[in-house]
């Protein structure tokens, strides 16, 4: 609704952050979106053995308007990239992206003209999950880490402060080209 974003910084906002974070992580609805073999592992994660339903995540919404999490499960072809971006744009804030598998994260073994070399070229990624394809246990682990991230995420003024700090540390830290020797 947006009221929670307009609270003044302090104890009240911290408390609201905690409660909102809890309810948000307790109800992360993924978009129905599978691209390749990783999608099979994603479906298995929703099945009887691994059961993401325990965390309230069995609600795969077909409409991106009602989804919170986009699991990019598989390699993203150049042709799919605009579609993927559109689905991301149609999701309402707050939304998260999980780049599942090495292809979605970095292009993986498809080092060619047809595949986007990492989905972070197209959408901002919250958590990268390696593996080819990752096993359901790994996806569950990534989801739990994402839950932690959602729980500890900031709101309103606190969020602005956090972003500013991140910007500063990024500016001060050495860029990759400046790293020499073992640092690189």
């Amino acid at each position: 609704m947006g009221i929670e974003e307009k609270l003044p910084a302090g104890v009240l906002l911290t408390t609201v952050e905690g409660v909102v974070g809890y309810f948000r992580k307790a109800s992360v609805w993924p978009a129905t979106f599978g691209l390749a073999c990783c999608a099979i592992e994603m479906m298995t994660t929703g099945g009887p053995v691994y059961d993401t339903g325990r965390f309230g995540m069995e609600v795969f919404r077909a409409s991106p308007r009602q989804a919170d999490l986009m699991i990019v499960a598989g390699r993203v072809s150049q042709k799919m990239a605009p579609v993927l971006r559109q689905i991301y744009d149609q999701m309402p804030e707050p939304k998260w992206v999980l780049s599942m598998g090495v292809c979605a994260s970095s292009g993986g073994m498809f080092n060619n003209y047809a595949i986007v070399q990492g989905v972070d070229h197209v959408v901002p990624v919250d958590i990268y999950l390696p593996g080819c394809p990752p096993r359901p246990e790994m996806l569950l682990d990534a989801i739990l880490k994402l839950h932690h991230k959602i729980q500890t995420s900031k709101l309103g003024v606190h969020k602005e402060q956090e972003l500013e700090e991140q910007e500063l540390t990024a500016l001060e830290s050495a860029s990759t080209s400046e790293m020499k020797g073992l640092l690189r």
């Binding site: 609704m1 947006g2 929670e4 909102v20 809890y22 309810f23 948000r24 307790a26 109800s27 325990r54 965390f55 309230g56 609600v59 308007r65 009602q66 919170d68 149609q90 309402p92 804030e93 707050p94």
Partner: peptide, 23 residues
């Protein structure tokens, strides 16, 4: 997972939905 026997689940769904961006 969320709440005893997951009883907080649907409450969480409701609160999360009402906190989402209106499009």
């Amino acid at each position: 997972v969320h709440g005893k026997f997951g009883l907080l689940q649907s409450l969480a769904d409701g609160i999360k939905l009402s906190l989402k961006e209106t499009i």
